[in-house]
Design a binder for these strands. Structure first.
Lengths: 338, 338
DNA sequence: TTCGCAAATGTAAAGCATTACATTTTGTGC
DNA sequence: GCACAAAATGTAATGCTTTACATTTGCGAA
């Protein structure tokens, strides 16, 4: 059941069979039909190792995420995979668990397999990794690494605009003491969010105290710790914006355990809009970030790289606020306190 | 940067280099060291297409899940991938979205890539698919397809035992009118859960009315609809066991929207123990199903197949009850009603 | 009918690692 | 120092497809 068998059966050469399979050059319709019939009858499937070895193309895209347990990423994966499959491209996935070592290992493995494109949806990207990526001649697209836009394609999120929207929303509700639950300093994507938040606060003419910035880890745990801290500090912020939903959800969980009420005691805003936001209590106000759009932009960026179409306009995604029950008027809060 | 370059640099033949890489036969330590040095210096990485083509081994396992958005599966994937990586095996993932077509397509693609093992964590498995799997000589392991245990390795969940535990728990709380929110009839795994629930009810000497069985889809939606039905029916069950957590969570969401109280008006039990169970309101009582154990058993089943070790004992996983806030005493319920 | 050109098809090399088999080296016992 | 078995290494074929280049076919014009 190799290509030679098909060729014999169809009474043509292997080259012709190959041409039919790849539609790489014209074959008379008559001949093509015979070949297709033979393929069908023998139930032939080309061996992708051989194809990849010979042609240098694998028809395989790699996608690397930092935390597959964060529902943000499965969404991203699903959209990306669907799109790729529609284009006849396979996708292979790696999860780093926020670990740079695992990222490098994954990149190596992918390169050995000769992937044709690589989407990196993680933030822990060291210089060594960048070098590694540069050395291989493979199209790469990053999420939220605008600093790399010179060398690689990028899809970035307009965090500032998103945070401004969140802060405006809180201000309308009367909040002035707004805190931020940040991601780990070791991740440059988390740092971008942090900086964007500061910039947004400045843009909104609000001042931010150092002790209103809480350090987190982008997982549930980070939110849990932050809640314990916030509810025991004096002069706590009346509203907290979180760097992602997972932490906001962890915050809610602990708040509920401590019998503290959101938004009555503190208003909370997340980031991402995971499906869980609708089912937690109270439903979480958050900034929606479209996974479909990110996946689509990333995918086409890779396709464009492959086709040497060199227009290099970085895609920018705008999040937007989805108001739910976790944010409330500061007046209500004060009346309770007083 | 092919193997010949390494061989030249180390002053040996390509065969020797290959032997060092694969530790396939003895090489004098002295020689091996030279080879390793050459590999290091040239930063050589073997081309996996060539290896796979020649050896017939790809060092690649495939894993297919039915719904990557259901947090159950990312957990499974993470554990499986971690284990595989530790054993030097790559993992490639496909998501079917409960669609049999996509399952078949994924299997085909995987076979073309010459995967060495395939873990199928989906339930929509048709006979045509079984045939396809049988025709290829690749180790396969299924989750919850005990009917296939004759032909393939399987990991199964002891649903009956799990449901008995859930029902006993409810009975202790005084419930006798217990309903079931089932998964789609088109999935045989869902059917197994349904049958197991019926068996468990019988084992507990409880009777079950037909109208207390709700049809769902194993996603949030199914739970939402079920809640709307249950809260408007007369003679509704006082407790509801769900075929999975996603539906239970959808149920909670709609209950909250309808301002109906769980467990005051109805007790709710889920299945899986997703991370969200702790953060929804009320926290969801559920049956914990260990993803780590499933992943581990499945992985070693594949490894065993590869090594021709033919002991064929199907692994059985026992879920256990995790009581949380969504189940309550029926007395409390009656006092409210009365 | 014949010529010439473009289109279609065929031939065979190449891509890179593994491995059966052949050959050389090493080490042991005398 | 020699013979011989065992261990280490080398040679070259092999896996399957793609593709550069060579050849044949088809077709319109003369």
């Amino acid at each position: 059941m190799d290509i030679a068998a098909v060729a014999r059966r169809a009474g043509v050469s292997t080259a012709t069979v190959s041409r039919v399979i790849n539609s790489s050059s014209k074959v008379r319709e008559n001949t093509a039909a015979k070949v297709r019939a033979a393929i069908e009858e023998l139930n032939y499937r080309p061996n992708s190792s051989a194809r990849c070895l010979r042609s240098g193309r694998s028809n395989l895209f790699g996608i690397i995420v930092s935390d597959i347990r964060n529902p943000f990423f499965p969404d991203l994966i699903e959209h990306f995979e669907l799109l790729a499959t529609q284009h006849g491209i396979d996708v292979t996935i790696a999860n780093t668990g926020y670990n740079e070592q695992r990222l490098v290992a994954a990149v190596r493995r992918f390169f050995e397999r000769g992937i044709d494109g690589l989407a990196i949806f993680t933030s822990e990207v060291s210089n060594a990794t960048i070098e590694l990526l540069r050395s291989a001649d493979v199209p790469v697209v990053f999420l939220n690494q605008p600093a790399l836009a010179g060398d690689f394609r990028t899809v970035t999120v307009d965090y500032i605009q998103g945070f401004v929207e969140a802060i405006e929303h809180l201000r309308m509700l009367g909040h002035k003491k707004i805190g931020f639950l940040a991601g780990p300093v070791t991740q440059n994507s988390a740092n971008r969010r942090r900086k964007a938040f500061l910039a947004a606060m400045k843009a909104c003419d609000l001042s931010l105290r150092d002790e209103w910035i809480f350090e987190g880890d982008h997982r549930l745990t980070g939110g849990r710790f932050a809640a314990e801290r916030l509810f025991t500090m004096r002069n706590a912020p009346t509203a907290l914006v979180c760097s992602n939903d997972m932490m906001a959800i962890g915050f809610l969980e602990t708040a509920s355990r401590l019998e503290r009420r959101v938004p009555d005691e503190v208003s909370l805003i997340g980031f991402d809009d995971l499906f869980v936001c609708e089912v937690v209590h109270p439903a979480l106000t958050t900034l929606h970030l479209s996974r479909k759009e990110i996946a689509t932009r990333a995918f086409y960026a890779l396709q464009a790289s492959r086709n040497e179409s060199l227009e290099h306009e970085p895609a920018v995604i705008s999040p937007y606020l989805v108001p739910r029950a976790s944010t409330g008027s500061v007046a209500r809060l004060k009346s309770k306190a007083g």
